[in-house]
Design a protein around this nucleic acid. Structure first.
Lengths: 269, 269
DNA sequence: CGGTGTCTTGAATCTAGTCAAATGATGTGG
DNA sequence: CCACATCATTTGACTAGATTCAAGACACCG
């Protein structure tokens, strides 16, 4: 967590990563914005060239972070905004028994600005699930950015709505879906979220989570997660080897999960 | 849903309600603020006399609403802010099978202003669980209120943080607690929320929900909710007759649920 | 000497089987 | 709408074996 990294190097370095050769096409088309954040926010509110430049300037704050690094401890009040540029992070809560429940994923383009902006403590822990590249933007610089770029502020506001809707969707997922359905729904959600930042190619994306991570997300045991994945494979819905997930039958998968994509899109005013 | 109702009449009329004589002391002490909303917001940010007056003036918009009335249909964009003054309402989502999952409760003092303020559609249905008194405040009037009363706006912002934290807490509840623990946690949460608006006396409060409502909240079958309640009764943690819930052993109940009250309180800046 | 490739080894991680516990479905009566 | 009984299903706990990955040791080659 020492020196800044050029962003081009960054994205491939972490996401293509260690365990499996990067089979996914790294560059979808030519017109990809500079980073996941810009790409995501642009989807929520059209950004100007200056806006994009300002976002790219955040690269100066980016540092590599190893796997399983705690970014924000529960109940602390961070004075930085955290922006994920590459890798997966999570918000989770632990029980005294040691079990954890992941309540949200942070994928590239996602951020945590609550503490920085409002001085309220977080009631859960923020931790990386994989090696990441993360920008720690000091409160002042972050506020300055929002002040100078109203479109970015608007896009971030919409992103917050989507976050809230996602949390509610997770409640639905845990509350009334079976194991298989929960997994299907999560995979659909990730396909959308990663797709919106250009990290899905031809129904395939990199899923750098262990089955234990998935279990702690879906409220299942890791053993049952394994069973559930077998079922999805057997039914020809997905193929998953190592970290490379391929959605073979998107339509059927969405139908199984009763996945409605609307909650991930910001409505237009 | 026709004529405005004096607020004093309102609160006792609905909460004391139909099925059981109102055994709970209707007036805790003498210094109770005029309405649940003022009382709740005052807990988030100290209000002035003018602020309180402005809130009381919302009475003009209040109408009685029967049980199981749909307030906002899924995917619609309401042009009013909805404020619950008495009774319980819910946000829920339905599956094609007909099953519903409640994702949030709206108790007196809670509100739904998303659609009115930002023009985004709701991704779930808003429906009363009991007879209610609800204010429908037109967008313009609501914005005007916020503009004139910055403390109210601040308190509402904090209320929104609490709502978000509550949703995450429900994810934890559904994801990694057993039936008994889920119920215990919900009862603890309601005790806090109702307590903050003065509707808990001596560990007792009015719980106007059916076991089916609770089941659809906790991701359990109604039969299992019944089992779970029997266990809590047998262990001397609660007594529940009709709608009158008495928390007999608050400490043990909180311990069982691993309930941490912090998420319901707004941190101070 | 330094770089490169192979092999070994240990730690995670995944897969799979068995049994037990929690929870759901159905029906009946109060 | 609640209480309770009965039976079916899902899911968890425990265990063990297989697989993958990472890091180091070592030999080979330039």
């Amino acid at each position: 967590m020492e020196t800044p990294v050029p962003i081009a190097v960054m994205e491939s370095a972490v996401s293509g990563g260690a365990r499996v050769p990067p089979r996914l096409a790294p560059t979808p088309e030519g017109d990809r914005p500079a980073c996941a954040l810009a790409r995501k926010l642009d989807g929520f509110a059209p950004l100007t060239e200056q806006d994009r430049t300002a976002l790219v300037d955040l690269i100066g704050h980016v540092r590599p972070v190893e796997r399983h690094a705690v970014l924000v401890e529960q109940d602390s009040v961070p004075d930085h905004a955290l922006i994920v540029f590459a890798g997966f992070a999570s918000r989770y809560k632990r029980r005294v028994s040691g079990r954890r429940q992941i309540v949200a994923y942070l994928v590239p383009g996602d951020l945590c600005d609550r503490g920085a902006l409002h001085g309220h403590p977080l009631h859960h822990t923020l931790e990386t699930l994989t090696p990441c590249h993360i920008a720690k933007v000091p409160r002042a610089a972050y506020l300055d950015l929002l002040g100078r770029h109203p479109r970015i502020a608007l896009a971030l506001q919409r992103a917050r709505f989507v976050e809230e809707a996602t949390a509610r969707e997770w409640v639905v997922n845990l509350g009334m879906r079976s194991g298989v359905e929960r997994m299907a729904h999560l995979l659909c959600e990730l396909m959308e979220r990663l797709g919106s930042i250009g990290q899905v190619t031809d129904g395939q994306y990199d899923l750098p989570l262990t089955q234990l991570d998935l279990a702690d997300t879906l409220g299942l045991s890791s053993v049952h997660v394994n069973r559930v994945l077998q079922v999805l494979r057997r039914d020809g819905l997905i193929s998953l080897q190592g970290r490379c997930l391929h959605i073979l039958a998107p339509r059927r998968l969405r139908q199984l999960a009763e996945f409605e994509v609307a909650y991930l899109k910001a409505g237009y005013l």
